[in-house]
Design a protein around this nucleic acid. Structure first.
Lengths: 223, 223
DNA sequence: CCGGCCCTCCTACCAAGGAAGGAGGGCATC
DNA sequence: GATGCCCTCCTTCCTTGGTAGGAGGGCCGG
């Protein structure tokens, strides 16, 4: 006998979840809440028997993951899984970081949703494979010869300086690291700004990020 | 027919893994490597057929997660799972963050290890339940700080300023855009630097990027 | 060999960024 | 009603960033 609770402010959605669970986990009880406050009250009341809370992000009284944080704070022993429309990879990771035992996108097909719930109730974590799998490179790399060419207009030394710039280093720090005078660094920085067509180091750093300086450096070092 | 590779510098351990896989996944081939460099070479050679690389942390030529990062960089399409004695929760999360498709502690019982491999080969993520479950109890106060809440420590106005900062705007430009005095902008910027724990606007901008300020703003506006 | 580019460094100057402190008004909480 | 936080703005002072111009030495290709 397992007891679940769904916290979501959309009655229709709660109803849908209830139907799925009734069909797929017949030996279970489902509690409902339409706000974080109510969920907390109910959770405390059924503390001993509650096996899992399915928490929606976007409850009226819970600011996204902040609601999860508060919940974890108040009831650290309660397993909480996120059930959300949000599918951002960072959000998923942060939820797990905050102690969620699973993350189920609302777009999950009914059968997968049940499988996920079962995994979680067995003590495993569940994360959405299609979201988490192969995400971070995220470089479809449309143009093999991108030639955004602004980066190619920089000399080696300037690239070195720009790289350091990208770590938030000051001119003085760059000078130390590269073993040259600060005035020389300034010379390089000025040249970089001119060649990149920007007017401040912050803009240069942002542009370096957009043009994927790291990849450019990796590529040119690899050859 | 699946092809796996195990990268570990302990021959005995490789042998043990080979035995487990031979018994549990009879329809598979296992490649071996005793260094990151060799693993990369082998992986490139068998690029088309290799289904999963089991990577040990602590290879002689790869310092912990850095090896994973380099591997992901060089071969983004290759699924990599970590197989390590290390069981620190943060390490696990960072590995997943870097794109690992699973994390298997070396202490995992043989049967669970096989089950984990099967899950991973099916396209799911695997994380060690006993490590990840109920982990962050030390949340209420403690000091070392998870430090992802740094954005939440900023006031609305500060977030506005930080957003503008992220576009490379100068204090003067921000003042114009927000319709306040430049001195006020400076006040905000100073407060932002202090609360984010950085010492220059460039670092603040970089940190805002890492913490995904845009997503945070979108999330909080959406509610 | 010479012109051109790069790297190095300098001086000098001005603009921008940032720290520190004070101050008034608004708003909420207790 | 007092406390506390936020937002606003100010002055003062110092550091950092950036521009301009000049100068010497190295390297390369014409």
């Amino acid at each position: 006998m397992t007891t679940l609770m769904v916290a979501d402010d959309h009655p229709l959605f709660r109803e849908a979840i209830a139907a799925v669970i009734a069909a797929g986990l017949p030996d279970s009880t489902l509690l409902e809440a339409d706000s974080l406050a109510q969920a907390m009250r109910e959770a405390r009341r059924h503390e001993a028997s509650l096996d899992l809370l399915l928490l929606d992000l976007g409850l009226p009284d819970a600011a996204g993951l902040d609601g999860l944080a508060r919940l974890r704070d108040a009831l650290p022993a309660l397993p909480v899984a996120i059930l959300s429309a949000e599918q951002d990879r960072r959000t998923v990771l942060e939820a797990i970081d905050l102690g969620a035992v699973g993350y189920i996108p609302k777009s999950t097909p009914r059968d997968d949703l049940l499988a996920a719930l079962e995994r979680i109730l067995e003590g495993h974590l569940y994360l959405p494979p299609q979201v988490m799998r192969r995400p971070p490179p995220a470089r479809p790399d449309s143009s093999p010869a991108p030639l955004d060419d602004r980066l190619t207009r920089l000399t080696d030394k300037q690239l070195e300086v720009l790289e350091a710039l990208g770590h938030g280093a000051s001119n003085k720090g760059i000078a130390r690291k590269l073993g040259i005078a600060e005035t020389t660094v300034k010379t390089h920085v000025s040249a970089i700004l001119r060649r990149l067509g920007v007017t401040s180091r912050v803009q240069a750093v942002l542009l370096a990020g957009e043009l994927d300086l790291a990849a450019y450096l990796a590529a040119r070092r690899g050859r």
